[in-house]
Nucleic acid binder design. Sequence first.
RNA 1: GCGGCUGUAGCUCAGCUGGUAGUAGCGCCAGAUUGUGGUUCUGGAUGUCGAGGGUUCGAAUCCCUCCAGCCGCCCCA
Length: 418
Amino acid sequence: MNPLTSVKGMRDILPPSSAVWNQVEAAARRIFARFNYREIRTPILEETALFARGVGEETDIVSKEMYTFEDRDGTSLTLRPENTASVLRAYIQQRLDQEPGVHKLYYIGPMFRRERPQKGRYRQFYQIGAEAIGSDSPAIDAEVIQMVLAILDEVGIAGYKLLINSVGSKESRARYNEILREALREAAPQMCGDCRRRAETNPLRVLDCKVPEDQPIIEKLPSILDSLDESDREHFRRVREFLDDLGIRYTVNPRLVRGLDYYARTTFEVTHGALGAQNAILGGGRYDGLAEILGSKVPAPGIGFSIGEDRLVMTAEEAQAMTPAVLDLYVAPMGEAALRHALVLATEIRKTGISVEVSTDRKLKRMLEIANKTGARYTLIIGDNEIASQSYTLKNMATGEQTSATRQKLLEHTQWLK
RNA sequence: GCGGCUGUAGCUCAGCUGGUAGUAGCGCCAGAUUGUGGUUCUGGAUGUCGAGGGUUCGAAUCCCUCCAGCCGCCCCA
């Protein structure tokens, strides 16, 4: 029988990579705290109807990528493919609209989409996201964008590119769809096969086409920005103005259309060259009207983003932006008595806040080898001599220098651990 | 869901047009040193050659199917 393996597209995250994940998450949490965003944890499993209505029946996500199954009572359940619908559901269900102020929430966790796996795309993938619910002020849009860029900076990512656009209200978007469809009746026959198909099924996606020959044709298609109504236009103008005030550099890309049905007005995306075909490291946008779609009687305009954590970690690892975990002290006890002594001593030293591992190997040579390979900064040798003299041998692994140290000195680690 | 490429030791890979796998590099283990690592030297272990089936006297090598990974499409984070 073959050994069991993980499910296709789902992977194990092992050390030392797991440390990078933790550092990325810690960096994000620091930034969220500075912007007064609080964590929300929603269930990984929701009723299928939530995503069908919230994300949109016609989207690829809902129509072909969800992990859906029947619960024992016949209810259709789905492993969340994204988290905005869940957060909005919680907002409505928990009546957060009855509390004052804008709700600023963040989440970190796994999402599930049954797509073909490739670099930067997994069936279980992780998102770090945030939602600001309860305001349609363009200042919130700018702040959300500023915050997500601050996370990238905190993680140590450079060389990314911010793209922004406005897809307008639901009404202007529908109007634009018609205009585009009309224009494509002329243009599509000269375009690639995919575009000819998209001209019928999803005209907005034509704008995303990467076939070089199609680019001149796409340039000439009407821009969505010309279809915006006066209030959308003003909203977008003010978002840009705020971004300018904040010194944030961006490119307006009228062809940036996002795949989820709920986006309205501001949309944005950050790409990074190191990622390959899946070059979007994060995406987001405003979703005024989503609450009503989910059955809320009160409107709850909002904007949010989600970062592809897998992609962020990949970029951080390539940029070597994170520092590996180090072991401060490796304790090498020789013999049974020394081991008993070491366990007690290690307990005391750990209380001072440094990392300590006690070896269970027997030979000193072996123990030093392990200390070296694990990258321990110091090794503490405990043998009969040391127990008798109440003075241990402390070895600096980088220099090889050995000094003797009493229990008291070890506990005051600032003396020796630089 | 579609297309292309790849799949030999823990990792990176060699193995020409079929003759039953490599003193390969790195890593791992042991010894040179029964209380001293990183350098060096010596020795050692490890493969159902991704899985299954077929062709053949004989398959890692050719054919088919499946699986996995990568790349691209679709789409997205």
